[in-house]
């Protein structure tokens, strides 16, 4: 499960000097990060550290103030709409709350990317979707509505939809948030299986330490919009960096209190 030292360093994602603002407030302060093919990279940090913001940049949902984000060798902020759509068929995303479409059954949700991006006939698509439902152990649930699923099942369905196009790159936002430990461990197991069986590169955003240590090849520790460290699980665990140790010891909230944010909250609307 640890990093494979002799992999070919094939960069799948390359973030360079990424700076981003909400309004006039700087959120990410010049981040650079490389993610290599076939690895599971966990982006970790306390709440408000900028994890979601970074993820949204990787997904091309936000435009940076400066800096670049390249995915599979292409600068995503320079692509045309058509090229971006094409690139997106090679990326899968499992959102934190699942983001399943509530008006469609689980099966229709998982079929949707195939229906929109391929010309396959319906039965082929149905088989491909069922294959993925088997992978996430959600067979027999295709006719349920998302509202009828448990939290863990929603995460599985979201994973199935994310991998239905066999993407090279998979993003998971807080895969274990809100789940009990057993279910959460099963989801972690599933993520590792996906990497091993399908050779995907996987980026996981989480604030759960156990989960991060269980699945990561490398961990990127984010704090107040800066990267403190990018290294293997062992290295992160044994670091002498005080802020990271604080994070690991869960003195999280206090450690990440942002003075700017604090002032803003006190003075808002006055």
């Amino acid at each position: 499960m640890s990093a494979t030292p002799n992999r070919t360093p094939n960069k799948v994602i390359e973030v360079k000097d990424l700076v981003t603002h909400y309004g006039t407030r700087q959120i990410l302060k010049g981040i650079s990060l490389d993610i290599y093919e076939g690895e599971i990279m966990v982006i970790m940090g306390g709440s408000g550290s900028g994890k979601s913001t970074l993820l949204n940049h990787l997904l091309g949902l936000l435009k940076p103030s400066s800096g670049t984000v390249s995915i599979l060798g292409q600068d995503i902020n320079k692509l045309s709409a058509v090229e971006m759509t094409k690139l997106r068929t090679r990326m899968g995303v499992a959102f934190q709350g699942g983001a399943l479409f509530s008006s469609m059954t689980v099966g229709e949700n998982i079929l949707l990317p195939l229906r929109e991006h391929t010309e396959l006939d319906h039965s082929t698509m149905a088989i491909m979707a069922r294959l993925k439902m088997e992978v996430v152990k959600l067979a027999d649930f295709e006719n349920l509505m998302p509202s009828e699923l448990s939290g863990g099942m929603i995460k599985r369905a979201a994973l199935a939809r994310a991998i239905v196009m066999d993407p090279r790159l998979l993003f998971c936002d807080e895969p274990s948030a809100g789940l009990d430990p057993v279910v959460s461990a099963a989801i972690d197991e599933l993520i590792i299986t996906l990497r091993d069986a399908m050779g995907m590169t996987i980026v996981v955003v989480t604030h759960e330490l156990e989960s991060a240590f269980r699945i990561a090849d490398r961990i990127c520790v984010l704090d107040r919009g800066d990267i403190l460290m990018v290294d293997t699980v062992e290295a992160v665990r044994s670091t002498s960096n005080e802020r990271i140790q604080n994070l690991l010891n869960r003195r999280l909230e206090e450690a990440t209190l942002d003075p700017d944010d604090y002032m803003r909250r006190l003075t808002i609307g006055i």
Binding site: G60, R88, A99, P113
Partner: peptide, 17 residues
């Protein structure tokens, strides 16, 4: 509005829809 809050709109974007 509900779709936006549940990130369903984001999901459409990243699916290339």
């Amino acid at each position: 509005g509900t779709m936006r809050i549940n990130q369903e709109i984001d999901a459409l974007h990243v699916m290339g829809i």
